[in-house]
Write a protein that binds this DNA or RNA. Structure first.
Ligand code: MG
Ligand code: MG
Lengths: 602, 602
DNA sequence: CGAATGTTTATAAACATAAAA
DNA sequence: GATTTTATGTTTATAAACATT
C-alpha cells in the first residue's frame, strides 16, 4: 500500500453504514438522505439497544479483553452463534461513549461454537470446458482454432454460463468467501435476471438504437419500466480489470489463458463488455496484463501460443465461482435505488459511477498471554471476507491496498461522451487550433492538481451518491498474495476456509522445509531491498521506508480473520489476525518480538 | 522489457536515419521528405562510399569477425580514431547487399586507439543551492519554511537556473553521455532562447490571453513571428515524468527531494510546466512517484518531512547537467520545421506530439575464443549512449525498455481541449444524458481495441510528422538500472565514461566482496522468481517467462558498450557487451556457459 | 501491409491520509 | 480543539504511441 507516513495499519476508511444504527448523536455528514426505514428488518432487533448509552447487554459467551499493547483497543471474542449485528451495535455505543479516551477500536474475533463449516451451498459442479477452447495441446501445431464465437451474436440460450468454472477442479472444496455486498448484489442481479431466456444481443441493439435516438433528439427517456435484466447487462460489473483477469485465468484447469480467451471469458461473464463497453476495454485488459507483475506470460513448449498465467505465489485463486457461492439475498433497497437513479433527471447524468465502499483487510498481529483462556479456531463465522486469509505477514510490511471493486470506474455511456458530436464525428480530439500555443487563461484552470470531476461541477453535488447508498460492505482481495503459495487445489477438509488452505499454517508449498523459508527470510529484513539482486515479487512489495520492517512471520502462526470496529470514524475494517501465544510454540525467528507500538501511529 | 515471445535481444526499432545515407535502393518509407542537403557536412566524406556495392573500403585497423554463435552477425572492432560514419556506411552497404542470407547485423565495438577520455567540456561548475530550499535539518522542528516561491510569479531574472545542479557534487566528473538529438535540440532552444532577459511570465500571459481570444473568436493566428524563445517555454520538454523526477532528485546533494521541491525544480527547469501545463501535471508527478518502485519515499529522522529518493540500486544518476554537457549544435533544419509547423493550417493541429525515435541499449554477451586477437578496452570512442553502461547482465533476462523520451506525450494545448466550451464550462464530462444506457450504435465504434487518434481522423494523415522530421537520434536511459550500484560520485579518473564507473568491472559497490555478490546470485537463477520472498528491484524485473534465464554474470567480466547495426531494418541500437574469453579468467559461476542460441529467436 | 498482441507513458480520477488553515 | 481545506500518496481506468509477431 505504500503506506503514508505514519499511516495506521488499520486504515480508516470512508464511513460505512454499519449493520446497526449509529448510536452517536454526531452530525451526520451524509445528510438526511437515508431515512431509518431503509434499515434491514433483520437488524431491527439490534438497533434498539444501540441507543442506550452505557449498559450494553452482550450475548453470553462474549469475552472482551484489552489488547496487550494497542491503546484504546479491545479484543472481542465472539461465539460463532452470537449475533454479530447486536454485538457491533453494542460495541459502537460503548465506543462512542468513551470517545477517544476510552476503547474505541474493537477487534472482533470468533471463539468456539459450532462452526465446523456447516453445510455451505455446494456449487452446481457442472463440467466446464469453458475457457479451454484454445487450450491447444501446447505442442500440436495442428490447425489453428477456427474462428471463435467472440463477438459473434449468440443464440438466446448462450448467455453467461456463470458458475461453470472451477478452480483446480474445485469440486469438494467449499469456498467460503465473503464478498462485498455490492458485488453480490450485482451478481444477484446478473444471475437472476440474465437466466431468463431473452436475446440479449438483440435487446441491446434496440437499446442502443433507442439511445442513439435519444442522444440525437435529446428526448427525455420515458423510463417507467423497472430496471430489468437489461441493467445487469448494461451495468458495469464492480470488478476491476485485474480481478476479472484473475477470474478468467483461474477458471481454467491449468491456470493459464490466452489473451483472446480472456477477452471471451470476460465477455461471456460480464455482458457489459460484450455489448456496451467501448473496444478500448480490451486495451485496458492488455494494459493490466502487462502492468501487473502478477500476470506472467508464458509460451507453450512449441513456442506457438502465448498464455497468460498468474504467478503462483501471487495467485489468490479467486474465481467468480467463489463470489457466486456467497449469494446474499438481493437487497430490496438496491432495487429502490436503481429506480431512483433511473428516474433522475437526465441532466444529473452519471459519467462516473460512485465507487463502492469497501473495508480493507490487514494483517494484525496479536499476542495473547497464555493465561488468556480464549478458544480460538481458524474458522470464523462472522461474515468476514475470507480472501484476506491469503495474506501473509508480509502485508504488514508491504501493506498494499487490495480490493476487488475498482477504485475508479468510468462507466460512461459508451458513445455518449460527446453528445454534441453524436451524429457524425468519431471520438476525435477536439480541434484546438493553432498548435501548442492556444493556452487558455490560467484563471479558469482547475485549481487542484488532482483533476476532479466534481470540483468544477457544483450542480447536483451528490446526485450520484443516491446511486448506491445501501451497497456498503466489504470487498474481495484481488491483489497478489504476499506469501509464496502452492497450487489452488481444494483446501484440506479440516479447514473450512479455502483461502486459509492456500497458506498452510506449517510449511509453504514453495519451500521444501522451514529451513528454506528461514534462509530466504533475511533478505526481507534488509532495510535496503534493492541491495538484493533477487527478482521481485509480482506487484508486491515496496520498501515502505519509514515504517519499521516487520519480520515475515513464519508459517507456524495462527491466522484468523477478524473485524476491527473503529468507533472514532465509524469504520468497520477487515483484518487478518496473526495470533501467537508466546511460550506455547516454537519461534525460531523470534517473530514474537514484534512490538505493537510499531504499528500504532505516533 | 517483458520480452515478447521470442523477441530478439537486439530490438529492431523504428528506422533511424543513420549518419550515412542508405546505400540500398529499397523504397524509402520515409518518403522523399528529407533531401540529402540535410546531411551533416562532417559526414559528407563517408557518404560517397556507401553506394558502391561490394568492395567496401574500411579504414585500416578494422577487424571483422563472425560472431561465435549469432547467425548473420559480425563483430566489427573499430579503432578509436576511425571514422564511425564511414564504417557504418560501409557496413550498411555490405549488409544490404547480402540481405537476410548474409551478415546483416554488425556489432560495433572499439579496439585500441587513443581514447584516454580526451578533454570533455567541463561543466560550468556553479555552486548550487538550488532545490535544497526545504531541506530542513531533518531534526530541527523549528519554524517551518516560509511560503515558497512555487507558482509565485518571479522577477524576470529568475528564470531557469539550468546547469546549476550537481550530481554528488559532480565537479571533476566528466560525464560522457550520449543523448537524443531531439533532447539536445530542445535544450539548445531552451538555453539559447531563455537566457535572454524577458519577463516570461508576462509574455506567457499575453500569449494565453491571445490564445483565449483566438479560441473564442476562432481567428487564424497571424503568426509570422518566428518561433522565438516562447516556443521553448511553450513546448513540452522531451522528457518523461520519470526522467524529470530523476533529474530533479539527482540534482541535490543528498539525492532526495520533497514533492514540492520536485514540482518547483521541474517548473524552474521546464517552464512549460510552470506556465502552460494544466495543473494535472502535478498529479502525474505524484502518480509517477507512486507507480515506479525506483522512487522511494523516505521520512526524515524526526518523521516530519517526507523525501522522495531514488533507490540507489536503480539510480542512473541522470541529471539535466549531463544532458547539457552534450550540447550539440542546433540543427538548422529544426528551426525550419518549427516554422513549418507553426504555419500549418490550424485544422491540422497537434494534440499528439510525434514521438522521438530512439535507440535502445541492451547487454549482449559475447564470447571470443582466446585466439581472436582483438584488443578490447572499456573506453569506446564511438558516440554511444553511455548511460547504457549502467546496465548489468540482468538486462538480458529482464530486458526492459528504457528511454528518456516519453513514449506518449499529449502536448495538447493546455486549455484548448474543449474549444466549444472555452468560455465558462470547466473541463466537465460531456453530458451524456440518460445514465449508462445511451449506447450508441456499435457500428460507428472504433474497430481497433487500441484507441487511436489517427484512425478516426483521416484528414491530414501525417501532418504532424512534419513537426520534427529531423529529430531522429538516440535517447538517454532513465529507467532504473538492473545492477546494484553505489553512490553517484564522480567516476575514477582511469575511466573516461562515468557510467561505466558506476558499474566497476570488479566489485560492485553494494557488495562488500565478490563472495557476497556470488552468494546473492543464486536467487536470480531460480526459474521462479516468485518463490523467493526477497523484496523486488524497483520497477525492474519480471519473470520474462519463456526466455531462458541467464545467470547474472559476475563482476569479473568486461563490459563494453557497442552498437548493433541491423541492416535488415536500418536500425542502429546501442548494446552493452559482456565480453568474455573462456579460459582466460576464473569463472566460479560458470557463466561462460552462456549459449548465444539462447538469445537468438527461433 | 494489417491485425493481434505486448509494453510504456500520459492523463484523469477516486479516494485515502496527513498536514495546514 | 474540532472542522474544513489542502497537500500528499495510492490505485484504477482510459487513451495512446509504438514495438513485435
Ligand atoms: Mg505482467
Ligand atoms: Mg514509488
Amino acid at each position: 500500500m505504500k503506506t503514508s507516513p505514519r499511516r495506521p495499519l488499520i486504515l480508516k476508511r470512508r464511513k460505512v453504514p454499519l449493520p446497526v444504527q449509529n448510536a452517536s448523536g454526531e452530525t451526520s455528514k451524509e445528510g438526511p438522505k437515508r431515512p431509518p426505514a431503509q434499515q434491514e428488518p433483520s437488524q431491527a432487533q439490534a438497533s434498539t439497544k444501540a441507543t442506550e448509552s452505557n449498559s450494553c447487554k452482550f450475548p453470553a459467551g462474549i469475552k472482551i479483553i484489552d489488547h496487550p499493547t494497542m491503546p484504546n483497543t479491545q479484543v472481542v471474542a465472539i461465539p460463532n452463534n452470537a449475533d454479530l449485528n447486536s454485538i457491533i451495535a453494542a460495541l459502537t455505543a460503548r465506543g462512542k461513549e468513551s470517545g477517544s479516551s476510552g476503547p474505541n477500536k474493537f477487534i472482533l474475533i470468533s471463539c468456539g461454537g459450532s462452526s465446523a463449516h456447516p453445510g455451505r451451498p455446494q456449487p452446481p459442479a457442472q463440467a466446464s470446458s469453458d475457457a479451454q477452447r484454445t487450450e491447444v495441446p501446447a505442442d500440436t501445431p495442428g490447425p489453428k482454432p477456427v474462428a471463435r464465437d467472440v463477438n459473434v451474436p449468440r443464440s438466446p440460450g448462450t448467455l453467461p454460463r456463470l458458475k461453470q468454472e472451477s478452480c483446480a477442479g474445485g469440486e469438494a472444496a467449499g469456498y467460503a468467501l465473503e464478498n462485498s455486498l455490492t458485488n453480490i448484489q450485482w451478481l444477484g442481479k446478473m444471475s437472476s435476471d440474465s437466466l431468463g431466456s431473452c436475446n440479449i444481443k438483440q435487446e441491446m441493439q434496440e437499446k442502443e438504437n433507442c439511445h442513439l435516438e435519444q442522444s440525437q433528439v435529446k428526448v427525455e427517456e420515458p423510463t417507467g419500466a423497472p430496471p430489468s435484466w437489461r441493467d445487469s447487462v448494461a451495468e458495469r460489473p464492480p470488478y476491476s480489470y485485474m480481478a476479472m483477469i484473475q477470474f478468467a485465468i483461474n477458471s481454467t484447469e491449468r491456470k493459464r489463458m490466452t489473451l483472446k480467451d480472456i477477452y471471451t471469458w470476460i465477455e461471456d461473464h460480464f455482458p457489459y463488455f460484450k455489448h456496451i463497453a467501448k473496444p478500448g476495454w480490451k486495451n485496458s485488459i492488455r494494459h493490466n496484463l502487462s502492468l501487473h507483475d502478477m500476470f506472467v506470460r508464458e509460451t507453450s513448449a512449441n513456442g506457438k501460443v502465448s498464455f497468460w498465467t498468474i504467478h503462483p505465489s501471487a495467485n489468490r485463486c479467486l474465481t467468480l465461482d467463489q463470489v457466486f457461492k456467497q449469494q446474499k439475498r438481493p437487497n430490496p433497497e438496491f432495487r429502490r435505488n436503481v429506480t431512483i437513479k433511473t428516474e433522475l433527471p437526465l441532466g444529473t447524468r452519471r459519467k462516473m459511477k460512485p465507487l463502492l465502499p469497501r473495508v480493507s483487510s490487514y494483517l494484525v498481529p496479536i499476542q495473547f498471554p497464555v493465561s488468556q483462556s480464549l478458544v480460538l479456531q481458524p474458522s470464523v463465522k462472522v461474515p468476514l471476507p475470507l480472501a484476506a486469509s491469503l495474506m501473509s505477514s508480509e502485508l504488514v510490511r508491504h501493506s498494499k491496498r487490495v480490493r476487488i471493486a475498482p477504485k475508479k470506474q468510468h462507466l460512461r455511456a459508451p458513445r455518449g461522451d460527446e453528445p454534441e458530436l453524436v451524429f457524425a464525428e468519431p471520438p476525435e480530439p477536439q480541434p484546438a487550433d493553432g498548435g501548442p500555443f492556444q493556452t487558455p487563461v490560467k484563471e479558469t484552470l482547475p485549481i487542484s492538481s488532482t483533476p476532479s470531476k466534481s470540483a468544477p461541477l457544483p450542480s447536483t453535488p451528490e446526485a450520484w451518491r443516491l446511486a448506491s447508498p445501501a451497497a456498503k460492505v466489504g470487498e474481495l482481495e484481488v491483489s497478489p498474495v504476499r506469501t509464496p503459495r502452492g497450487t489452488c487445489g481444494p483446501p484440506p477438509d479440516s479447514l473450512g476456509l479455502v483461502e486459509l488452505s492456500c497458506t498452510p499454517p506449517k510449511s509453504l508449498p514453495l519451500f521444501g522445509s522451514p529451513r528454506e523459508l528461514l534462509d530466504a527470510q533475511p533478505l526481507e529484513l534488509t532495510p535496503d531491498p534493492f541491495g538484493s539482486p533477487a527478482p521481485p515479487h509480482p506487484d508486491v512489495p515496496r520498501p515502505a521506508s519509514p515504517e519499521p520492517q516487520v519480520p515475515n512471520l513464519a508459517a507456524s502462526r495462527s491466522l484468523t480473520e477478524g473485524l476491527v470496529l473503529d468507533t472514532m470514524n465509524d469504520s468497520l475494517s477487515k483484518i487478518l489476525l496473526d495470533i501467537s501465544f508466546p511460550g506455547l510454540d516454537e519461534d525460531p525467528l523470534g517473530a514474537d518480538n514484534i512490538n505493537w507500538s510499531q504499528f500504532i501511529p505516533e
